[in-house]
C-alpha cells in the first residue's frame, strides 16, 4: 500500500511540473508587458480564451489542420495585443497606473460577455484525443507533456528574441529606464506596440496548449487568470526568471494540495502561500531583502 501511495504522489509531482510549464508560459507574456509598459493586463486570460475559441472554430468546425489553426490563432491574439495597446492603453499611458489596470479590467468584462454573446455559455471541446503515455507504473497525459515541451521552447525563443535581436535589446533597455531610453533615440511607442504584439502572441501560444487539455467557455479565463497574476507578483512583477520559478512553485503546491485533498484546496493553499510570501518579500521571491 505504501509503495502505491508514493507512485501516485510522484505522478502528482510530475503533473505539477508539467502544469507549471503552461503557467510559466502564461505568466511570461504578462510579465513582459508589465516589465516594459508598466501595465497589468487584467484581461490577459480573456485574450487566451479568444485564442482557444479561434483554434476550436478553425480546427473542430472548419476542419483546418491543427498546426496552421494554431498559427492563425497566435496571429489573432497578437493582433488583439496590438489593439489592446493601441486603443486602450496608449491613450491613458500618462494617467495613474491603477487606471490602466481598471481599463483592461473593463476589457475583461467586454471580452467575456462578447464571447458569451457570440458563442453562448456551453463548454466546447476540441475533440482531439491524445494518448496517455505509460512509463513504468506512471501515467502521463501526452497533452501535458506536449504543452510542457512547447512552453519551454516558447520561453527559450523569447529569451533569444530579447537577447539576440535589436528590438529585443531595445525592449530590455526600455524596461530598465523608461525616460532615458527615449532620449537615446529609442522609439518607445514602437517598442510598446511590439511588446504588446509579442505578449498577445504568447497568450495565443498558451491558448494552443490549454485547448488541448481543457474545454473552452466564456468564463474559462477566470479559472486560470488569477493564478497567473499571482505568479507574476510572486516572481516580482516584470521579473521573468522570478515568474518562471514562481510558476513551478505554485503549480507544485496546487498539484500536491490537490493530491491530498480536493483541487480547490490546492488553489486555496497556493493563494495563501502567495499572500504570506508577499509579506516576507513584497518585491517578489528573487528580490534582495532590503
Amino acid at each position: 500500500m505504501e509503495q502505491i501511495f508514493d507512485i501516485y504522489l510522484l505522478e502528482a509531482l510530475i503533473n505539477g511540473l508539467l502544469f507549471g510549464g503552461v503557467l510559466a508560459l502564461l505568466s511570461l507574456g504578462l510579465n513582459l508587458i508589465f516589465g516594459v509598459i508598466d501595465v497589468v493586463w487584467i484581461c490577459y486570460a480573456e485574450i487566451v480564451m479568444f485564442g482557444m475559441y479561434a483554434i476550436y472554430w478553425l480546427h473542430a468546425v472548419y476542419g483546418i489542420p491543427i498546426v496552421p489553426a494554431a498559427l492563425l490563432a497566435i496571429a489573432l491574439t497578437g493582433a488583439m495585443g496590438f489593439l489592446v495597446h493601441y486603443l486602450v492603453i496608449s491613450p491613458i499611458l500618462g494617467s495613474p497606473p491603477i487606471n490602466q489596470l481598471l481599463a483592461t479590467g473593463g476589457l475583461l468584462f467586454f471580452l467575456q460577455s462578447f464571447a458569451t454573446l457570440l458563442w453562448g455559455i456551453e463548454f466546447r471541446n476540441l475533440g482531439l484525443r491524445l494518448p496517455v503515455l505509460q512509463w513504468g507504473e506512471l501515467y502521463f497525459s501526452y497533452a501535458r507533456l506536449l504543452a510542457f515541451g512547447i512552453a519551454v521552447i516558447g520561453m527559450i525563443a523569447i529569451y533569444l528574441f530579447l537577447t539576440r535581436t535589436y528590438i529585443g535589446t531595445a525592449i530590455r533597455a526600455i524596461s530598465q529606464d523608461r525616460e532615458i531610453m527615449t532620449l537615446m533615440g529609442v522609439d518607445s511607442r514602437r517598442v510598446y506596440l511590439v511588446t504588446s504584439v509579442v505578449g498577445g502572441s504568447l497568450a495565443g501560444l498558451a491558448a494552443c496548449l490549454l485547448v488541448l487539455q481543457y474545454d473552452v467557455h466564456p468564463f474559462v479565463g477566470l479559472s486560470f487568470g488569477p493564478i497567473t497574476f499571482v505568479i507574476c507578483v510572486l516572481g516580482g512583477l516584470g521579473n521573468m526568471i522570478g515568474g518562471f520559478i514562481a510558476a513551478f512553485i505554485l503549480s507544485e503546491i496546487i498539484s500536491i494540495g490537490g493530491f491530498y485533498a480536493e483541487l480547490e484546496w490546492g488553489y486555496v493553499l497556493a493563494f495563501a502561500v502567495f499572500i504570506v510570501v508577499m509579506f516576507i518579500r513584497p518585491e517578489g521571491i528573487l528580490s534582495k531583502k532590503s
Binding site: 481599463a103 473593463g106 460577455s113
Partner: peptide, 21 residues
C-alpha cells in the same frame, strides 16, 4: 441575448476610464 448587457457595460467602462475618469 445573454451577455449583451455586460458587453455594453464593458465598453462603457473602458470609455469612462479613458474619457471620464
Amino acid at each position: 441575448m445573454v451577455g449583451l448587457d455586460t458587453t455594453i457595460y464593458g465598453i462603457l467602462l473602458v470609455l469612462f476610464i479613458i474619457f471620464l475618469p
